[in-house]
Every structure is written in C-alpha cells, then in structure tokens.
Nucleic acid binder design. Structure first.
Length: 309
DNA sequence: CCTATTTGACCTAT
DNA sequence: ATAGGTCAAATAGG
C-alpha cells in the first residue's frame, strides 16, 4: 500500500516534519521556563540552559532550511527519500564540437541526501566525471554518473563529498532514477557482513521498477569488481601514506582525494562504489521494508554539517 | 587496445 | 560576476 515516498507524499511529510519541529521548539521553550525556576536550588543550571538554547537554535535553523522550500535540503537519515523528477537535469545531446549549450545545469532539484561514516555502496555502477573544490568546503566534491548513462540512457548521478574527517563522514547526494537494468550483485551476497543475519534477505529483494533509488538501509558492501575483499581493505593503508606525508595533502584536489578517487584505476571504492563492471553483477535494488517511514531524523549535533560549505 | 580517472576549460544558474 | 556542474582531452592501468 504505502508506496515508499511518493512525490505527492513528500510535501505532506515535510509538513509533518515542520509541525513536529515547531512543536519541539515550543516544548523546549517550556522546558527552558521550567528549568529556570529552581535556580535557588543552587544546581548547575547554566550548562543546561546553554544546551537548551543550542537545541532551540538547531530547531530554528532546521526550520529555516525546510521553509526555504527545498525538499532536498532535508536531511534524511537511514533510508533516502525518493528522488522526484529525473528530468530536471539533462545533459542534452550535443552534436557539434562546440560545447555551448551542450548541457543544462541541474537546477536546484530534488535530491536524495545520505550520509555515512564509511562510503556505503549503493549497489550501482558509477563513473566519476568530475571533481570540484567547493567554496568554503574543506573537501572537494566528487561527481559521478551512472555507468550506463549512454548505453542505457540512465540519468542517475550522484555527488559525494567528505564533510568531516574524524570520524570520517561522507555525504552522498543522489539525483535522478536509475533506469538501467541491473542484477543482483553476487559479490555482495557472498561478502556481506555476517554481522546480522537479516541483511541478506533484504539485499536479495528487488523493487519492481528496476531500480529505484531505494537504497538499502542495511549495511552493504562496496562494489567489488573481481578483486577480493582483501584488496578492498588494502585501500586504507594508502590513505595512511597520504596522511603521513602531509595531512593537508589529504584534501588536495589533485594529489589525493582520499577514498573518493580511484587511485590507480582500480577500485578504490571502498567508499564510493566504483563501477562494478566486470562480471555484470551490479546493483542491488534493495527493498527497504522500512522505507515507508519517511523519518526526518534530525540530529542536533549534526545540524552542523548543514553549514559546512 | 580499451576503459576509467584526472583535471582544466567551458557553460549555466543564481 | 561567480560558484558549481559538466565536458572532454590527456593520462593511467589492466
């Protein structure tokens, strides 16, 4: 029944989120009033008040973000929300050698923002096509498009940006739907962490529509070409090297952009899900059973990243 | 040789 | 005018 996040539902959910935030802000205000009174008890009220103040600020900021009318700004933790219209962006067909008018820049369009401490593989084959240093951002942004952009006209793309180093935190913004055909990734099934037993069942299920950006909530493995797990993990030592030489080098666009690049041509994608080409085993349109709960889980501490950049 | 990545140039939305 | 997104030539790797 509940189709996971229909576009029409988004605004309703958004409204609910706004209402919830408003209510939360109001409740916090009341709490503040209550806490203020027992000052005479000599307790450490100041830190509490300080905290409450910060909480309220977070609410206010979040509200302002949401009210700025861009749904894409909403941080969704866990299951990403549905991308609404893949059409807002098209690279267009460029016939002449002249690149003028060859593509249309994406307007501020619907997107799917997801964050994770390690780069979670979303099961699709991606190809990097650009990298850019973003104003006021410490780390460069990496641009990926679906590997099947041309052979299958798949318009899906994503941007990945490291937003925090310690602990590492990456923000992935998805645009467009995957219209490419994809198949269950065998390697994923095999390699999937034994941590919890139920993840497999999730991974194996598919969505009817080929592959929605219904990325699984369950921990997924990085796309793996034909390399072994070991190779994937060997990726980390490389980073250490870079940090060793100079920690600032770490985010230099060209020299070393950490996990996001594929150093040397093979998958470095521990993080970024590199193209999983080879054996034609990509993708995992995992059906997230809990996808319907469009939780807008706003973590106060993490409100910070809204301003990074 | 083929495919993927890097990276500066180009182009558009704001 | 500028920041951000994309293109495509050069380059790297298998």
């Amino acid at each position: 029944m509940e189709s996971p996040s229909l576009p029409e539902n988004s605004s309703a959910d958004l409204n609910r989120a706004i209402e919830g935030l408003i209510r939360g802000r109001e409740l916090t205000r009341r709490l503040k009033e209550i806490i203020k009174k027992p000052l005479a008890l000599g307790g450490e009220v100041a830190p509490i008040m300080d905290l409450v103040g910060k909480i309220m600020d977070s609410f206010s900021e979040t509200l302002s973000v949401i009210n700025s009318d861009d749904v894409s700004q909403v941080r969704v933790v866990g299951t990403p929300v549905e991308v609404k219209s893949p059409e807002d962006y098209s690279s267009g067909s460029c016939k002449s050698a002249d690149r003028r008018g060859c593509y249309k820049r994406r307007k501020t369009s619907e997107s799917n923002i997801k964050e994770s401490s390690d780069l979670v593989d979303d099961g699709h084959a991606w190809r990097k096509y650009g990298q850019k240093q973003i104003l006021h951002s410490t780390y460069p942004r990496h641009y990926f498009r679906c590997t099947h952009k041309y052979d299958q006209k798949c318009q899906a793309s994503k941007q990945v940006q490291k937003i925090q180093d310690n602990p590492p935190l990456f923000r992935t913004t998805y645009y467009g739907h995957h219209t490419c055909k994809s198949f269950p990734r065998v390697s994923q099934i095999i390699l999937d962490s034994p941590m919890d037993g139920d993840s497999n069942s999730v991974l194996l299920s598919f969505d009817q529509n080929n592959c929605h950006p219904n990325y699984s909530n369950a921990p997924t493995f990085p796309s793996i070409k034909q390399e072994t797990k070991e190779e994937v993990f060997s990726f980390y030592p490389k980073i250490e090297d870079q940090i060793q030489s100079s920690s600032s080098d770490y985010f230099l666009p060209a020299a070393s952009d950490d996990h996001l690049t594929s150093s040397g041509g093979h998958m470095t994608a521990v993080a970024l899900s590199p193209d999983v080409i080879s054996s034609g085993v990509y993708s995992s349109c995992t059906t997230t059973t809990s996808n319907d709960n469009l939780e807008i889980d706003i973590d106060f501490e993490e409100c910070l990243w809204n301003f990074e950049g």
